[in-house]
Amino acid sequence: MVRAIAWRVAGVVPVLFLVTLVLFLLLRLAPGDAADLLVPDDATEAEIQRIRERWGLDRPWIEQYASFLLNLMKLDLGRSYRYGEDVFALIASRVPATIELASLALLVAAVIAIPLGILAALRKGKALDGAVSVFAIAGVSTPTFWLGILLVLLFSAELQLLPSGGRLPYGVQLPERTGLHLVDAVLAGRFDLIGLILSQLVLPVLTLAFSMVGIISRITRGAIIDVAQEEFITTSVAKGLTRGSIIRHHLLPNATVPITTILGLELGVLISGSIIVEVVFSWPGLGTLLYQAISVRDIPLVTGIVVTYTTLFILINVVIDIIYFAIDPRIRASQGA
């Protein structure tokens, strides 16, 4: 097991190398020059050249890439052209907001989707199954920016129940320990802020969760139906076990592996795919940072964020492997544990 995880972690190195190389090439091949985008419309050629020299954009791309890799080995992602700040520090300041949003969205999606998937599987071919399918398809096919705007329109502008976006308003003091506001509020004993923090999370979380519900419920349904066709389930029925007992002790535990897989994958997708939702709700996470960085071809920042996404994605996969190991005795046996 340890060896498998070590291999998986070691795999980060070639993946990061490839990802950063492709990114560098793409950003360098694209016609837009960061220096052009950093200066105002009326900038002179001399000023553009000064900016180019300042950020080393006048050097050959291979030289820029080599220097980026050397710095990456020292965990130095360089400085952002646009923000003028250390990329690592910038990313570190935004990661918690994205993780808080993505984790809660996944939690909400799982709480809704897994029971729905189980119910749909148990009522296969019935009206409920059809209704869940319709709901699932709606979730997968609804564009998040459209849903987000509609939710803001309803809950913010019309009903005036929830804020239209942003994170913790001005003047609210919350000691930052983890950057996850809900956790920080609990750690600081500021339970009075929980409602406020949740109110700012509700709309972006629902927007993200809705798209996840569809896919998670479909995978759950499929997993349960697959397991239900196994011989040990037939045996359980023949032994006269109750329906509830079969579901709790045989169906669900055996369907956990594919459900865990999809939850892990979806968390990765949520973290890297919340850009639009973050922009719509002015959520100060990695997504808004990436949006800003791409718009001005801020190569160190774009590369840094993509490196972060890649690393997080791989780490999530490692965690899923560990969870497999914990929940499935067959995997433990195959690993010789």
Binding site: S156, S164, G165
Partner: peptide
């Protein structure tokens, strides 16, 4: 607030 829709909604609810 870069999204126009959000700006309008925030104005309407007095944010």
């Amino acid at each position: 607030m870069r999204e126009p829709e959000q700006r309008i909604n925030a104005l309407l609810n007095n944010e």
